[in-house]
Write a protein that binds this DNA or RNA. Structure first.
Length: 892
RNA sequence: AGGCACGUAGCUCAGGGGGAGAGCGCUUGUCUGACGCACAAGAGGUCGGCGGUUCGAAACCGCCCGUGCCUACCA
């Protein structure tokens, strides 16, 4: 007791580190792969990118996982939470390149090997920061099992998956149009392209029609609308719809390409929309995904005119070397001068940008590696359809199906250095490709030794797709795999549903023959108070570390949980965190109170008192506690973190602190049996509340829990409170509600009549039945104390005194004699207001009850409830009327 | 263009067929032997608009308005 009781305010500094170190020393986070515990629960962390530090979204993500893991651990499961970080190919490479730039160097000067060494150094640094932050949050990860997407085991796993898919014909290499980032110098998958609506122009350009059979243009022409005039240089045809009567006769003829003066054919293709622009489409197969497809259908030449830097290449003639956007300007100028340009319209359309650097994507023809998705996607759709995997909230299932149905092959090669180098070797002699798990010595085709490994690396998401089983040791047949796969739940946010979740499902099913996780819980995105997505460039980032420094980790964690509503984004506000900081402090002081009253306590660790010795308040608080336990468990089961947090909050603050502690103060002053019972219940309720709260607030619950009169190894390894049905006590709750109503009524009179709290009152009660009298008499001491009443007269026929304020609750008339203190006029107004309120309610209920349809159609219990209410209101109305009458007399 | 959310107290948000809830803020009072990061009592809402279903709608359905997000090949 001396230990606590010192500070009136809880100070998290020091406490958090102390407990985290304690848990680590005890090895509580470590899952036992040799355990025969049949209850198992596992989560793999969505590995944060090693691009610096964690933001608030990560904080939310990990707090929710930690809540689940701590809850299950307390509930007796063998729990495993695997932590780790992701190499994040392009993003990380960009960061290190930027660092080099600041030193006035670039990666090409350094060379591939030394550059990669440099990235590894950065990795160590960033990883350290991230892990530290995760620990600061209280995350109870199994650190002995920490993984990295490029560590040795995961590299082997990645290679295994690649080779295996290649052998099964699901990975192929080919020339296709891909999304090219001219700044990152790499291909990107469709998902890595962000579309953004932008203002641009639609240029109407005249293409002169060639005279049939001759090598010269006629004076006729076709007009074509385009947003990208610079691609004219790469046009190899123009297309019209075969049904378009305007152009039907022209199909098969040709036009002269303006500026370039090259002759290209007019082809017919269904894709062309007659109603858009002029109904004529220029075809640039090497720089547009749909032109590419049309080109393939018609065997058109593919003419690349833009290079990997976004500059025009030698095929662009006099525009060679120009940036693509500069070329556009110049070309338009040229078209204008040579009278090819008909007009320019304003036009806004969506343009693809690189999701890493926001550069405008250049669709480019290129040789890349792809994964065939259709055979993988079908089983992945099935497992969600048949409920083997649950997506929570369910609304996301539709989004998932939609995407999976329209899935296209996945471009997985990246022209960067940081990542898993593709395990394919090209033969310099026969051009054959050797794909192999081990470094091959000879070409599989010609047997020559003149082979060279692919320089490209794999898309980062390729290795992420194996995360749920590669982290458990696959392709080795480990104990961990057999114990913890499939994992129990994946906690993530919707923005990587396709990038990651869908791919994990596909790859997991393929290689493990089972889903990677049973539940997918999709949480909100954290936005700032204005609803903006947080980003460094906007400068609206709330730093989780700063919040934890300022308010403590427990308050911060609790806030995130309380905000974690399904299907809605979070707007984080400091006020709210502050509110929960106050809650932490409230709990701290309730505990102080408890310990200050425990100096002579030698009671047991359980509720060992005879149930018949329990007072109403005891029965009530135990009933409420158990209902709360039930609610919290249910909410956690359903991933309703906010509901769980709220239940605990309401219980601890507004029931345990506001009422129970206040009510038992008098009992604790006495000595003897009564005191012991109070102490016992007090300790038990506090203990269970702490354990209930532990997954949300791990630190303070340990700090307080340590001082409970129990011999324990720590809250985090104590059992999670169980719901005990026989503790639920409807009668106690009903009686307590009556007493609380009654107390509120007296306090209300006090406040409205400006009677200072220090003024002890005399109160007379006129009660309508014996039962209520018994309860009131029994609880008289409590009532007097909390209402600050010096004299309480309870009876069946007590009469109102003349100068008394009055109030009515269900079946109880309250008279407070206020000789000299009462202002009759004011009291009259007060009663009139009350009467009006009651009448309003009464009219409402009566109206409903007089509706025949209501009586016949509404459920009987609803009707019964209304009838009872009506009866109560009539009683109240009568009493109020009587009292109003006599107060009116006093006014005269 | 299509799809999906959302619109509830001044602010941030819960709830969801049977008389509107929380936190913060606001007003008034308290300095009570755990806590002023507190206690007590209050004020404050046509639950975006219009129709429909129902005995009953803030909740379910349709349309409209507003906001946000996602997906998309109309050059």
């Amino acid at each position: 007791m001396d230990k606590i009781g010192l500070n009136k305010r809880y100070d998290p500094i020091g406490v958090e580190d102390k407990w985290y170190n304690y848990w680590m020393e005890k090895g509580y986070f470590h899952a036992d792969e040799k355990s025969d515990n049949p209850k198992r629960y596992s989560i793999v962390i969505p590995p944060p990118n090693i691009t610096g530090s964690l933001h608030i979204g990560h904080a939310l993500n990990n707090v929710l996982q930690d809540i689940l893991i701590r809850w299950k651990r307390m509930d007796g499961f063998n729990t495993l939470w695997i932590p780790g970080v992701d190499h994040a190919g392009i993003a990380t490479q960009n960061i290190v390149e930027k660092q080099l730039m600041e030193e006035g160097r670039n990666r090409h000067e350094l060379g591939r090997e030394r550059f990669i060494e440099r990235v590894w150094k950065w990795k160590e640094e960033s990883e350290k920061t991230i892990i530290k932050q995760l620990k600061r949050l209280g995350s109870s990860c199994d650190w002995e099992r920490e993984r990295f997407t490029m560590d040795k085991g995961l590299s082997i796993a990645t290679r295994e998956v690649f080779v295996s898919l290649y052998e099964d014909g699901l990975i192929y290499k080919g020339d296709y149009i891909i999304n090219w980032c001219t700044r990152c110098h790499t291909a990107l998958s469709d998902l890595e392209v962000e579309h953004e609506e932008q203002k641009g122009n639609l240029y109407y350009i005249r293409y002169p029609l060639m005279i049939e059979g001759e090598k010269r243009p006629s004076t006729d022409h076709l007009t074509i609308a385009t947003t990208r005039p610079e691609t004219i240089l790469g046009d190899t045809a123009i297309a019209v719809n075969p049904r378009d009567s305007r152009y039907i006769s022209l199909i098969g003829r040709s036009v002269l390409l303006p500026i370039v003066n090259r002759e290209i054919p007019i082809i017919a293709d269904e894709y062309v929309d007659e109603s858009f622009g002029t109904g004529v489409l220029k075809i640039t197969p090497a720089h547009d995904p749909y032109d590419f497809e049309i080109g393939s259908r018609h065997n058109l030449p593919q003419l690349k005119v833009i290079n990997e830097n976004g500059r025009m290449n030698e095929k662009a003639g006099r525009y060679k070397g120009m940036d693509r956007f500069e070329c556009r300007k110049e070309l338009v100028k040229g078209l204008k001068e040579e009278r090819y340009l008909v007009r320019i319209e304003d036009y806004s359309h969506s343009i693809g940008h690189c999701y890493r650097c926001k550069t405008i994507i250049e669709p480019t023809l290129s040789k890349q590696w792809f994964v065939k998705m259709k055979p993988l996607s079908e089983p992945a759709i099935e497992v969600v359809k048949n409920g083997r995997i649950r997506i929570i909230p369910r609304g996301w299932e539709n989004t998932y199906f939609e995407w999976m149905k329209n899935i296209k092959d996945w471009c997985i090669s990246r022209q960067i250095w940081w990542g898993h180098q593709i395990p394919a070797w090209n033969c310099l002699d026969c051009k054959g490709i050797t794909v192999s798990r081990k470094e091959p010595e000879r070409c599989i085709k010609c047997g020559g030794s003149n082979i060279e490994q692919e320089r490209d690396v794999l898309d980062t998401w390729f290795s992420s797709a194996l995360w749920p089983f590669s982290t458990l040791g696959w392709p080795e047949k480990t104990q961990e795999l057999s114990l913890f796969y499939p994992t129990s739940v994946l906690v993530t946010s919707f923005d990587i549903l396709f990038f990651w979740v869908a791919r994990m499902i596909m790859i997991g099913l393929r290689f493990m023959k089972d889903v990677p996780f049973r539940d997918v819980y999709i949480h909100a995105l954290v936005r700032d108070a204005e609803g903006q997505k947080m980003s460094k460039s906007k400068g609206n980032i709330i730093d989780p570390l700063l919040m934890m420094d300022r308010y403590g980790t427990d308050a911060f964690r609790f806030t995130l949980a309380a905000f974690a509503v399904q299907g809605r984004d979070i707007r984080l506000s400091k006020e709210r965190i502050e509110g929960y900081r106050n809650f932490v402090n409230k709990l701290w002081n309730a505990s102080r109170f408890t310990f200050l009253n425990l100096s002579d306590y030698n009671g047991g660790t359980r509720i060992e008192v005879d149930k018949s010795d329990l007072k109403l308040v005891d029965r009530w608080i135990l009933s409420r506690l158990n209902r709360t336990i039930l609610e919290v468990r249910k909410a956690l089961d359903d991933y309703k973190f906010n509901e769980a947090a709220n239940s605990i909050y309401q219980f601890i603050w507004h029931e345990f602190c506001d009422w129970y502690i206040e009510l038992i103060k008098a009992r604790l002053i006495d000595e003897g049996k009564e005191k012991r019972i109070s102490q016992n219940i007090l300790v038990n309720v506090l203990d269970k509340s702490l354990r209930l709260l532990h997954p949300f607030m791990p630190f303070i619950t340990e700090e307080i829990g340590e001082q409970l009169p129990y011999k324990r190894e720590g809250m985090m390894v104590s059992p999670y409170p169980e719901f005990e049905e026989d503790m639920v006590d409807d009668i106690a709750e009903k009686e307590m509600n009556m007493i609380m109503d009654f107390l509120r009524e007296i306090r209300n009179i006090r406040a409205e009549m400006d009677i200072p709290p220090s003024e002890r009152l005399k109160v007379i009660l006129n009660v309508d039945n014996k039962n209520k009298i018994n309860v009131l008499v029994r609880e008289k001491d409590y009532i007097c104390r909390l209402a600050r009443v010096k004299e309480l007269k309870i009876g069946l026929d007590n009469k109102r005194e003349e100068s008394a304020a009055t109030a009515v609750i269900d079946g109880i008339e309250i008279f407070i004699p206020l000789e000299g203190l009462i202002d009759f006029k004011e009291e009259k107004i007060r009663l009139e207001d009350k009467l009006q309120e009651v009448r309003k309610d009464l009219i409402f209920v009566s109206k409903r009850l007089s509706n025949r349809d209501f009586i016949t159609n509404a459920p009987p219990e609803v009707v019964a409830k209304d009838k009872e209410k009506q009866k109560m209101l009539i009683g109240k109305e009568n009493k109020l009327q009587e009292n109003l009458k006599s107060i009116t007399r006093m006014c005269e």
